[in-house]
Structures are given as C-alpha cells and as structure tokens.
Design a protein around this nucleic acid. Structure first.
Lengths: 144, 144
DNA sequence: ATAGTATAGGACATTGTTATCCTTTATTAT
DNA sequence: ATAATAAAGGATAACAATGTCCTATACTAT
C-alpha cells in the first residue's frame, strides 16, 4: 500500500511525538533502534521531512529531532502525500492515464470509494493522536 | 496500490475476455497494443497467469490466449493475490511484522476496514462482468 | 514432411527503491 | 578556541521491479 520509506516515516513521526511531548529531542540512532529501521536510511527520510516542514531538527550535542504543537497535529495523509505522492488518492486502480468519471475504467466506481476511505483514514490519523494510543497501551509500534 | 505487473494483468484479462466471448483467441501482439503494455513484458505475465490456471493458451497458428467459462468467473482478487501476494489483504499499514488484533499498530483498527473493503471490491470485480461494462460503453480500457 | 506462426522460457538490460558509507556543517560544553 | 556530538548531504552499493532480446518448443496449414 505505502512504500517502505513511507512506513518508516510514519512510525518515526509517532515515536518522535512521544519524546517531544516530554519536551526532549531524540537522535537518529535511538529512533532507528526503536522503530526497527536502518539508521542511515531513516536519516535520509527524516531529512526530507524536515526540509518540508513536517519535522524539526537541531544539530550538535543535545540536538536531535522533535515536533512542535503544529506538527503534532499533522496527519499521516501529509506524510504519505509528501513521500509517496498523491497517486494513491487520485490514481486509477488499473494504472490507466485517462481514467475519470467520464471515461471510467472497469474498477473506477468501486475504487473511488475505497480511495476516498483511505484518504479519510489517513487524514484522521494525526501524529499526536496516534502517539497517545501508544501511551495508553491501546496500540504498539515495536515487538515487546 | 497494485504493482504495474498486476495492473497489466487485470487489463489483459479483461481484454481477452471480450475476444473469448466471441469464441476466438488473441495474440500477445494484439493484447499489448490494445491495453498499452510492452509486448514482451505482458508475455511473461500472461505466461504466469497460464501456469496458474487463470488463463488458457494455445501455441502455433490460430493459437493465442483465451478464457473459458470458469476463468470468466474469476475475480480481480485472484489475479492480485497471484501476482502481488496477499500482503494487501493481510499486511500492516505501517509494515510491522507483529501487528494484530492483540498488538495493533496505531492504524490497525481503521486500516483493517479499508483492507476488507478492498478485498470485497476485488472479489466482486469478476473478469466477465468487467468486460461487459466495456461492451455497454459503461467503462473503458483505452484512450479513444 | 515442411514452413510458418504463436507461445514458452532463459538471459540480460534498465530503472526505481532501499540501504550504506563517508565527509561536511552546525551546535554545544568545556 | 577546541573537542565532541548530532544532523545534513553527496556518493555509491544492493536489490527488486520493470522491460527487452533471443532461442526453443508446440501447433497448424499446406
């Protein structure tokens, strides 16, 4: 459904959210360890998130990644759109370039509903809210 | 959502269905042209579909690909499962290996509904039925 | 039987994604 | 100022997905 890059990104954002709520910053090394992602690879991804304003960072000792109030309100939809583009929200299930309401592919009418549901799901999946689920043990990011 | 391979496969199956209803067979060349897919690539895909009994073929002159009554009743779900596997139906949105009802990821509860809807959509999208939509000009596979 | 045609299948090329290595830059604490 | 630390960023490697080339095999028509 999503690229691996995108999966890592969302997981990282949720993890960082937990640290940020305590007012702290977190290093790539710790993030990589906690979300089970390759360190150098997640580094690139976080860089990209920073460049696009979804995440904040500070260099040097005591530095690291963190989220502010605004960023905690961002949703998975923003992350997916940034990393995987909006093909998932707008593209044709059969990969046709011309598929539309007027010239629908044989899956179009069913698929547009699914697409919309996915978008709604992601739009509602705010980073801060998802992190809260971890705190309450109603959701998990890592094997125990 | 689906791999390109899978998109081609579904499109090809729908096209072949139309020919098969007229009792004829169709060559790779024609399929490739009609569904806008690279000839040699779609050849491999059709081979795979044949090997797994979703499609029939005959070599030699007057040969080609075709579908029987049974195959026309197959759904997109079968094709997707064969080519992309069932990760889409069963996998975790965030790529976690341990995500489950007991240890859900933060997206699990919303995602499982979406996953199910996708499966239902694909299960209902039978090859023969989709082909009929083309005949009635209620759906299209190719730019005009 | 033979020539021609169409799929089967092995090998390889290209491209995109995922992952790693190493140097540079910014920041902090001393 | 200096050393230590953490992210930024360029380059490259490994791997998978996509696409192409060429030969072998099966079948048909003559």
């Amino acid at each position: 459904m999503f690229s691996k890059t995108c999966e890592y990104a969302i997981r990282a954002m949720i993890y960082i959210a937990g640290i940020s709520k305590r007012g702290a910053k977190v290093s790539i090394k710790e993030i990589a360890r906690e979300i089970d992602a390759p360190e150098q690879f997640i580094a690139k991804i976080l860089q990209e998130l920073c460049k696009n304003g979804l995440l904040l960072s500070q260099k040097g000792p005591t530095g690291g990644f963190y989220l502010d109030k605004n960023s905690l309100q961002r949703s998975s939809a923003d992350i997916v759109k940034l990393i995987d583009g909006d093909k998932l929200y707008t593209g044709c299930a059969l990969g046709l370039p011309v598929c539309s309401e007027k010239k629908p592919c044989p899956l179009h009418n069913q698929f547009k509903k699914v697409r919309k549901d996915i978008y709604t799901m992601l739009k509602n999946a705010k980073i801060g809210k998802m992190q809260e689920q971890l705190e309450n043990n109603r959701a998990y990011l890592k094997r125990p």
